[in-house]
Design a protein around this nucleic acid. Structure first.
Lengths: 228, 228
DNA sequence: GCAAAAGTGTTGTGTCTACACCCATGG
DNA sequence: CCATGGGTGTAGACACAACACTTTTGC
């Protein structure tokens, strides 16, 4: 009948999770589609936009409903609206991307229709979701280098070695510890708590926390989003 | 009846136009609203999304319908969807930003309900359009520094002085001609045509053209958009 | 020749990279 | 004392800003 456009909200959720060998890997949770189109295929979590809710709130709610997680960082990625991206009719998807803390991701709901995949080894997904994840990966890697969002993968306090490990896993390259330290210190993104971590067979590293008073993340025109 | 969401497409159009004193100024065309809400206020050109058309095509079409212009550069800016941004109901706007060549902008339709404004001296606009323009301005200025989009304001060939003038007007600061030249040459964004411009009371400058074989603009996940 | 802008050269300054080296802990 | 990673110092490479200087035109 009418040539209506469906408006949907989806989210690319990133977390660092241990793989079979126990190494942390950049991973994303996907949901299996239970109806046409693309029944049986894996897809990004999401759903129809809600008229009473902001788009970011819808993204966060869908994220919580499917995975039980709450994002440490949430930002709009892009609005996908090519006419042919869904065989079932015109669907415009506002896509967000989110970062989830590693310790939270451990608790994530997983089941027959919700599973985690390594971000760089995805199966063929429903719709244009492979394209979307590829773009989200590019944004994450680009933004990690000029912005300070890596701490969103970690807890409230962390060592510089942990923060560096996040960068190394996401960017897939080793980083010089000495230069990494200076770079982070120069950005004033973190402040030392004064505490140290004991127990390692080496000099006890300092603990740092994120300095929220320094604005290092441009999070689009709506500054209320972002760090939650 | 139903709590439907209206999907709209709007565009922030940038061009360099001469002001009263004859100096080029960064300007944008606006349309006057002829009905509620915000009747009489100026607003971004746009309209309802079309089910048969891509969002970028809708943006370009609306742009042409209201101003008679065609964009040299077009990129999605952001999707604005706060629940309270329109008093008449829920409207989600996919906003694009466009660059128009200076010589084309001269021919733009102007009338009682379409007028050009200096980008930094706008009246109070309808909806959240002041916020949107502010964000588009930030994006334009940021992207101009790390990407090579300035030539979209110019014709197919141009001198480095003209290209530098574009940068100076948009960024609102003078640039060293010597360093600007080296920076542009190092980016390989332009190639000399071999021709020169005569007629000035000085050494005739070389003409350059944009080198389309060098990808210097990241234009989102859909590479088909962008330079047109 | 003179003014004006095109175009080239040069020098200092700050930033990034690679890597040597010392520090503090557990065993 | 030794292995391990935390943390500091430093020299070379590189990029960039400032500015002196030469080139080529119109008048």
């Amino acid at each position: 009948m009418s040539a209506a456009i469906d408006l949907a909200v989806s989210t690319v959720i990133f977390a660092l999770r241990p793989d079979a060998a126990g190494h942390l890997v950049l991973s994303i949770p996907l949901v299996r589609r239970t109806r046409d189109p693309f029944e049986g295929r894996w897809a990004l979590p999401g759903g129809a936009a809600d008229a009473a809710e902001s788009l970011a709130d819808t993204a966060a709610r869908k994220l919580a409903e499917t995975t039980g997680l709450s994002p440490a960082y949430l930002e709009q990625l892009y609005c996908f609206g090519e006419p042919d991206r869904s065989p079932s009719g015109r669907v415009v998807s506002v896509v967000y991307w989110a970062l989830v803390r590693t310790d939270e991701a451990e608790l994530a709901a997983e089941g027959e229709n919700v599973a985690w995949f390594e971000a760089d080894e995805l199966p063929q997904l429903a719709f244009d979701h492979n394209l979307i994840v590829g773009y989200a990966l590019w944004r994450l890697r680009t933004k990690l280098e000029y912005s300070r969002i890596a701490h969103a993968f970690l807890g409230p306090t962390f060592t510089l070695a942990e923060l560096r490990q996040v960068h190394e896993i996401v960017l897939q390259k080793p980083l010089d510890p000495a230069n990494f330290r200076r770079q982070i210190e120069a950005s004033r993104a973190v402040v030392p708590t004064g505490q140290h971590v004991t127990g390692g067979r080496h000099r006890p590293p300092r603990l740092y926390r994120y300095d929220a008073s320094v604005q290092l993340v441009d999070n689009g025109p709506l500054t209320s989003a972002g760090i939650r």
